[in-house]
Computed example of a mutant assay.
Amino acid sequence: MTHRSIHPVYICLLLYSFALTPSLTQVLDTCVQETSCTCKNSKGTIDLTPLANTAGSARFLDLSDASGSNFKYSWNPCQDFTEGSGSCDKVAGCQSDSSTATYYNLGDQASAQFVNDATSLSLHYSATTDITRTMIVTLTCDETQEDTLSITGEDPNNPGTYLMTLTSKYACPKAGPGPTKGPPGPDGGISIGSILIIIFFATVVVYMSGGVAVQTFVRRASGRDMVPNYGLWTTLLGLIKDGFLFSFSCGRRTGYGKA
């Protein structure tokens, strides 16, 4: 008995079709930003408002990073604060150097953006003074925690980017209606057109990978016969080509005479 090898491309397509399903779920469950400290997804609303200090100072004030350096960090969700005799004036985040009493703006509430990726949700702030600095607060849901902010410090792979993690019950979505309509884009939700394109290509991938598997393992096909409905697609492509040629030549090509 001869053994027919399977082209690596077909294997990749088959694996990709299985991997695509959870990815679609993650994309479609984007937390759509509503304010500088609230966003909404299919599970409800994440609202950091209860953590906001409205007295003009930061809720999380002068916390040291994990390395124990001279740098300290302050953050206040939802409301701006001022620190360092105005060096950090009306900001959401501030970095200070205790050895030189120097303060650096890490962004205000207007710069806040909820950023979704495959594994986490985070709040990004940024400010440009002498350089551009970015503060990233990763949000971790824990119903047993009121609020704990751990400071990682400056990202060694991205100078000027400062990392911290909020663990809190307020980082958990509370039951409510699904997401409201937001602007398309990575931080404002995904548009209907993008959803339809994702579904279309997912369907094509599943159709092709499933069809190739059936043709190969069930019908023992080889070569071009491994493509499902090969004859139909070649005929259809030929008709589409003829249609374009007829349209662009306004019917004047040979073979398209008047009736």
Results as ranks from 00 to 15, higher is better:
T167C: 03
S85Y: 14
T132C: 04
Y170Q: 12
A55T: 14
G160K: 00
G243D: 06
F114M: 05
D47S: 06
Q95E: 12
P186K: 04
T140S: 08
Q79T: 15
T100K: 12
W75A: 01
D117F: 01
I131Y: 14
Y170R: 09
M1K: 15
G86P: 03
C88R: 03
D89V: 09
D65N: 15
G193M: 01
Y162Q: 07
G231T: 02
N70Y: 13
G193A: 08
G210N: 04
D29E: 11
L239D: 03
F60V: 09
Y73N: 02
P183V: 13
Q79D: 15
D187C: 10
G160D: 02
I190D: 04
A55N: 14
T82M: 05
P77Q: 04
M164Y: 02
S111F: 02
G188D: 03
S111H: 02
N53W: 06
T161L: 10
A19C: 11
I11R: 15
L237E: 07
G238Y: 00
S23F: 09
C78T: 05
I136L: 06
I199M: 13
S5L: 12
L149N: 00
W75R: 06
A55S: 15
K40T: 14
C31R: 00
I198K: 13
F200M: 11
I131L: 14
H3N: 11
G210P: 05
T167F: 07
V32R: 03
L51P: 07
N229W: 15
T235N: 13
S111C: 07
K43D: 10
